[in-house]
Every structure is written in structure tokens, then in C-alpha cells.
Amino acid sequence: MAEPRNRYSTVSLVLHWLIAALVVAQVALIAAHDATEGPLSREFVNLHKSVGLGILVLTLGRLGWRSANPAIPLPPQTPRWQKLVARGTHVLFYVFLIAMPLVGWAASSAAGRDIVWLGLFEWPLLPVGGGRETAGRLMDLHELAAKGLYVLIFLHVVGALKHHVVDRDNVLHRMIPLIPRRP
């Protein structure tokens, strides 16, 4: 029988932490947008759109990688309900990290607002009509999803810390190899 993996692959680690950093950047970009006005504020929004589309592409790549490289199972002593919550949280992460950029992209498209990806090229708009009213409804949905994502992040971090501090297992080591592996 093969030895069970004790940490995720380098590709999984890079995608996980890169997407996490980009999500944090998204929060900072919107905060900067809200705190400024005029051209600077629009630059923050444009960068937010670019980063969001980058998250979409990276998440699709991560989903593809994950389908070929399944998650490491939680320790056998983990209660079934915790395994279900962990699984549900991970599935919802993928849903939110795909849906949020798509909804933002659809909102920009409905409003007819160009998306210039990192100043390099124009990202194509989706064939979504409805103008400002539709764009506004989509942005309301986008903002509601952001709140849902914050809840998922909280659950994810609390779960990881619980494994490390309370259960004293190696679950956190799998994603942060700098943390020493426990015997």
C-alpha cells in the first residue's frame, strides 16, 4: 500500500496561496476605491476587475488540478460532521471564486463598461444587456457573495487553527510546510 501524502503538491500550494493573496488584494482595492474619488478611484476599480478575472482563471486552473490531484483526506479520527463541513466549505469556495468574477464581469458587460486587463488588452464583454439597472442588480449580488466569501474564509481559518491548536494534528502542515510536522 502506498504511503499517504502528508502535504499538498507545490502546484496546489502555489495556487491556494496565490488565490488567497489575490482575494485579500481585492478587499484592499475596493477599500481604496471607496476611500478615493475620480480617476484614482476608477484605477482601483479597473485593477479590481483585472484581479477578479485573474482569480477566475486561477480558480478554474486549480479546479482542473484538483480533479487530477484529489484532496488529502482529513485524519480518520475527524468526526463525520466536520468532514462534511470541510467538504461543503471547499465546494462553496470554488462556487464563490468562480461566480463572483463572472457576476462582476456580467455587471460590467451589462453597463457597457470596458475591462482592460492590467492595462494590457481589452477583455471581451459578455453578451449581457439591461444597462445600469441590470448592472446594479448584479453588483448587489456580487457584494452579497463577498459577504458569503468572508464567512467561508472565517470558517476555513478557524477550522485550520482548530486542527492545529486543539486536535494537534498535521492538517495545517499540509498547506503550510514551514510548520513542523508532528509525529
Rank of each mutant, 00 (worst) to 15 (best):
N46P: 03
Q26E: 13
I30N: 04
I30Y: 08
L92S: 12
G112R: 06
R113V: 13
A21F: 12
R168P: 05
H173E: 11
R80S: 07
R168N: 08
V91S: 05
L152Q: 05
H173D: 11
A28V: 15
A110N: 10
L47P: 07
A145H: 01
R168W: 00
L53N: 10
L120N: 10
A28S: 03
L102P: 11
L74G: 06
K49Q: 13
V157P: 05
A28P: 01
W17H: 08
L29A: 09
R66M: 00
F154V: 13
R168H: 05
R87K: 14
R181V: 09
V103H: 04
L118Q: 01
L84H: 13
P4D: 05
D114M: 07
A68F: 03
P39V: 13
L29Y: 08
L125N: 09
L118K: 00
A86E: 06
G61R: 02
L40K: 10
D140L: 01
W65Y: 13
G104Y: 02
L126Q: 02
L118C: 08
A25I: 13
L74W: 06
G129K: 04
S50V: 09
K49R: 14
F96W: 10
V158L: 12
V103I: 15
S109N: 05
A110F: 04
P177V: 08
I72S: 12
Y150A: 15
G136H: 06
H164W: 11
P124L: 03
N170I: 05
S108Y: 00
T134F: 06
T134A: 15
S9V: 04
V95N: 02
Y94R: 03
G130W: 01
P180V: 02
F154S: 04
T78L: 03
L178D: 01
T36M: 10
G130E: 03
V14E: 02
Y94S: 07
V165Q: 08
Y150T: 15
A160Y: 02
I72K: 06
V116G: 00
E37G: 09
R137Y: 14
I55N: 09
L141N: 00
W123L: 03
W81R: 11
A28L: 13
L97Q: 12
I19N: 09
V116S: 06
P4G: 09
Y8P: 00
I30Q: 04
W105S: 01
S41W: 07
L53K: 11
Y150V: 15
V128C: 05
K147H: 14
G52S: 11
G130P: 08
F44K: 02
V14M: 11
E143S: 09
I179A: 06
E43G: 15
N170D: 14
Q26M: 13
R174Q: 12
G88C: 09
E43P: 00
R113P: 00
N170V: 08
L120E: 10
Y8Q: 02
V151I: 15
Y8T: 01
P180K: 13
E43C: 10
A106I: 14
P79T: 03
L102N: 04
P127L: 03
L58Y: 12
G129V: 01
W117A: 07
R168Y: 00
L56T: 02
R87I: 11
L58V: 10
L141T: 12
D114R: 14
K83E: 15
V171L: 09
P183G: 13
L144P: 00
M175L: 10
D167P: 00
I98R: 05
V95L: 15
